[in-house]
Amino acid sequence: MTNIRYLIYVPVLHTQKETGEILLSLKADEAPPPADTSLAEQEKSVKEMWDGIHEKIQNTNISCPTIRIYQDGMPVCGKEKEIAGKLAQKSSRNHQLILDLLKKGANLEGTEDPDLLIEEYDNLSHLISKASVSIQSYRDSLNEYKEKGAKLMKQRDAFIAERIKSTLKEGETPLLFMGVRHELEKLLQSSFVINYIIYRLPFKKVRDIYNV
């Protein structure tokens, strides 16, 4: 059998604050998203999720220098480490873990098409602006957002899959941190044996925007 390539896939949830900040990292001049009253609860659950993920990654005993990290929302821009650093400072456990792995020799790769991310940001902003009008108005716009989002997600996933295949070096293992709505595995499972790392995904705590 020819070379078998493994891939580590970590499905993740982001707090609403994290999602906002990840997308905002592309738009330096925008104001931060409004604070959510249940933020503390969200953050606690997501922190636990990341602690569990961290432990499981350590248990894989994969040598860090052979890991190439691909991150949901990380644009291809040449400033990936900087962005990770900034988001880690803003308490993103996701990016704190990335920095940790980078310190141990892992590599971080720009993952997403910046234009597609900006389009996602615009769609999300539009949806959130409806929420400031009324919950009903938000709910009405949700279907439109979902449709646009699904189409955009396909484009994002196609870009990410190609990005992984073209940037991964010989002997390296890709480590993916991807929000749960991505459908990347469909594009990768014929090239890689996918191993999932799942500890817990606190859906209700994080209040997935689809379930308002």
Binding site: Y196, Y199, L201, F203
Partner: peptide, 20 residues
């Protein structure tokens, strides 16, 4: 046996939590 597809399905079906 968790994977990306069942996680998406679970999200659509409004689960409280998904654990391994």
């Amino acid at each position: 046996y968790g994977d990306a597809e069942t996680i998406r399905d679970a999200a659509e079906l409004n689960v409280y939590e998904y654990m391994a």
